[in-house]
Design a protein around this nucleic acid. Structure first.
Lengths: 349, 349
DNA sequence: CTGAAAGCGCTTACAG
DNA sequence: CTGAAAGCGCTTACAG
């Protein structure tokens, strides 16, 4: 403890056993070439000395990598936390290790983080892009030799010819359309779209799905029903009053995501409405809290943990087969109906 | 794209510039030894060829590491997600990269994950131990050359002589005592301790703090007031009825954590009580949801993100100074008073 | 079945 | 100010 003792290496083991380090290397990789007795002796010596394999050195020699970089906007957001958990789980099962980074929604920070991770020579990159990140940046920092998987949001600009990346996204438009159609089927007519930053690609797509459903039902959407908020519970709560500022007050809201919806439900109580009884709310994501809200929240399930597993599988496969055709996976988002929506027949006011 | 082009190396740059690779290396490390013109030429060539530094190779040569392993129970738990975000943020700022792993509360999985991460030769390990993990395991897999920082929970058994590790924990006992004392000061006398697994170290400590405060006030605690649940919102909700099964029903509950407390508040409504009006509730952790609950939850703030930053700083410092004395940091847990607790004078029944 | 030698991409004394 | 050489801990043909 006084001074750091040198780490045990292959050489130490080989020396102690009186064999060459090539032999020890073969034992490590369980080659059938080495005699059972020799193997036994070498393995015993490794245990005795507490040898630990230096995979970085092996990877350098073999020109391979067993790490994958994962960059998300914000780990503290349950959606990304679930996604990261899924990525890590699936990568671990395949013998890869996860290099974590987070951008905090800043394109500049994302560049730095990616740059730092790239120096560790990952076999691939899984990126949930910060708002405002553009291909021009990504290409220079990631280069053309490392497979990139983009998750959840589209990247601004267009990739230059020859820069290929895979994509996993949610069917935001279809999800929001399904939520809106449920409310329409339940008899609601004055339906708002509540929350999200209008300039994010996911919010644009969800709004488009909502508008589609409204248009198909022949309904107009006053501007006052399109309410922008930060995509957080706090903001969803704070701006609830905006729904009732005007004359034509809605009886239902399709929310940008669950965080906003859960915040809104609290805000509704403050405004004298009872969610699930005289005001209907839908969310998006199906985070764990959605099922235990008061009332439980009707939402669109996107299963972020499963998306994480899928992303990990895709990037590992791509690393093994660089020539494979580009994949663009838009995952259907499923409606999960709970008590926060109700038929207007039940309405008490 | 058809076949993977070789990665650009120092050699390529040196060759193209007609200098030795030692010179290029010096440029990389911004040594003042190299002539400004040469530096310029080399840097231009790097940009031109899209060179990316191979830090793994450099680390191997220098016998250093710029990675830290982080193993948590469950990333999807907001408490650990915040912690991980703090760790990653602070490590990134110091030029380290985070190697992520999760144990899913299984000691066996934890062993595997740690083993795999150790092969990447981290400069240190930050571990929030799975329940049931013991020193015997940790020592063999982590070895004595890599600094270990244990967070949040104590590890079973005792470390063998010479195996040193740092510790950051929360002052569970003082936190629970403070919560109980607040309720006492507000005039409550029949106070239950609600939730948690009695055999986890954090629950034991919190219960001890609660008992201390009750004893100091000369109050008895019937067994029926010590209620065990899984530490989740769902269970906190489901078992609310147990508080009112007996004759001497409490008017307040100190809860094991926020998840349980938020669940309990919903359950109270079902039982015909109004949290913050005729029943007082306290939590532990101050997760983001606590502040926006109905009513907002009085709780003990532990600031997991700041704990993460602190853990990162400590492990990096330890890696630089192996001889430093062992650190055992028990973080004061601060009472944050909100509307879920109230003076009995205000009570309506 | 085992050993000697070269090399992965970098850095570091040591000469010049 | 720059170059030649050795070495980090491993693997991989190639001989024997």
């Amino acid at each position: 403890m006084a001074d750091t003792p040198r780490r045990i290496t292959l050489n130490d083991i080989a020396h102690a056993c009186g064999v060459s380090r090539a032999t020890v290397s073969l034992v490590l990789r369980s080659s059938p070439l080495v005699h059972a007795d020799t193997r036994e002796r070498v393995e015993a010596e490794m245990r005795r000395q507490g040898y630990v394999y230096n995979r970085a050195a092996a990877n350098l020699r073999q020109r391979v990598s067993t790490a994958v970089a994962l960059v998300v906007n914000d780990l503290a957001n349950p959606f990304f936390a679930e996604f990261a958990a899924g990525v890590d789980e699936a990568l671990g099962a395949k013998g890869y290790v996860t290099l974590l980074g987070s951008s905090g929604e800043s394109a500049q920070r994302q560049r730095q983080v990616l740059g730092s991770l790239m120096e560790h020579n990952p076999a691939g990159v899984i990126l949930s892009p910060a708002e405002g990140s553009a291909f021009a940046d990504l290409e220079t920092v990631i280069g053309r030799h490392t497979p990139l998987l983009v998750f959840n949001r589209e990247v601004a600009g267009s990739a230059s010819k020859g820069f290929l990346y895979d994509f996993i996204g949610l069917d935001n438009r279809a999800g929001a359309r399904a939520a809106t159609e449920l409310l329409l089927a339940q008899g609601h007519r004055r339906i708002a779209f509540y929350g999200g930053h209008a300039d994010s690609s996911s919010c644009r797509q969800r709004r488009a799905g909502y508008r589609e459903a409204m248009a198909a039902a022949g309904l107009e959407v006053p501007d006052a029903w399109m309410i922008e908020t930060a995509p957080t519970r706090l903001e969803g709560n704070a701006r609830a009053g905006l729904l009732f500022a005007d004359g034509a007050t809605p009886t239902a809201a399709v929310c940008y995501n669950d965080a906003v919806a859960l915040g809104l439900m609290l805000g509704l109580v403050r405004e004298g409405r009872q969610p699930g009884v005289d005001f209907a709310v839908t969310g998006f994501d199906d985070i764990p809290e959605a099922a235990v809200g008061v009332p439980p929240l009707t939402t669109i399930s996107t299963d972020p943990r499963e998306r994480g597993r899928q992303a990990a599988a895709m990037v590992v496969e791509r690393a093994a087969h660089p020539g494979m055709a580009r994949r663009n996976s838009v995952v259907p988002a499923l409606l999960t109906q709970r008590a926060s929506t109700y038929g207007k027949a039940k309405a008490r006011r």
